[in-house]
Simulated scan of single mutants.
Amino acid sequence: MNLTVQFATNSAQLTPEAVRTLDALGRALSSATLSSYRFRIEGHTDTVGSPDTNKALSARRAEAVVDYLATKFSLDRTRMEPVGMGEDGLLVQTPPQVADPRNRRVQVVNLGA
């Protein structure tokens, strides 16, 4: 199961669309079927801004997703590993300083049991 949650420019705030996606994910992660699985929560940015700033922003995005899921669904935080990827792993390859919303995201990756 891979899932993507998108963000506004220079923001780690969850959008209403992101909340709907995370609510579906939270319900799934709360199920007995997935209770033994771990997930990497990868924060990403587009190429606007400095690499250091983007690395920090991507980490905040990943943490925002973990915080939401842990708080709303009482999920064990040890099941979710937040990682700030910054500009690494662009979904859409762009030159520097290009604001592509598809790259401003958190991707949830199933690590298995």
Rank of each mutant, 00 (worst) to 15 (best):
V108I: 15
L34N: 10
Q6G: 00
S50D: 04
G43N: 09
S31G: 10
G86P: 06
L29R: 04
A32H: 14
R38E: 11
D67F: 00
A12W: 12
Y37I: 12
T45S: 15
L25N: 04
T78H: 10
R20F: 05
S31H: 08
V109K: 07
A70M: 02
L69W: 01
V19H: 01
L22K: 06
E42I: 03
V5R: 02
A28F: 10
G112N: 15
K55N: 10
L25G: 00
P51F: 04
V5T: 10
S11Y: 11
G112F: 15
T15M: 03
D46I: 06
M80C: 09
Y37E: 14
A32L: 07
R40Y: 12
G89P: 05
P95M: 07
T71I: 02
R77D: 04
G86W: 00
A70N: 03
M1I: 12
E42T: 03
Q97Y: 13
V5W: 02
F7W: 07
R60K: 08
E63R: 14
A8M: 11
D23P: 05
L90D: 07
R77I: 01
L111Y: 07
Y37V: 11
S31N: 11
E17F: 11
K72I: 04
G84F: 00
V48G: 01
D67R: 11
Q6L: 13
V19E: 02
R20C: 11
S30G: 15
D100P: 00
A24E: 11
P96E: 07
H44I: 05
T53C: 06
V106D: 02
T9H: 13
D52I: 08
L91T: 06
R60N: 05
R104P: 01
D76S: 13
A70S: 09
V19M: 10
L22P: 00
T53N: 08
N110T: 07
A56Y: 10
T33A: 15
M80K: 03
D23N: 15
A18S: 13
G49T: 06
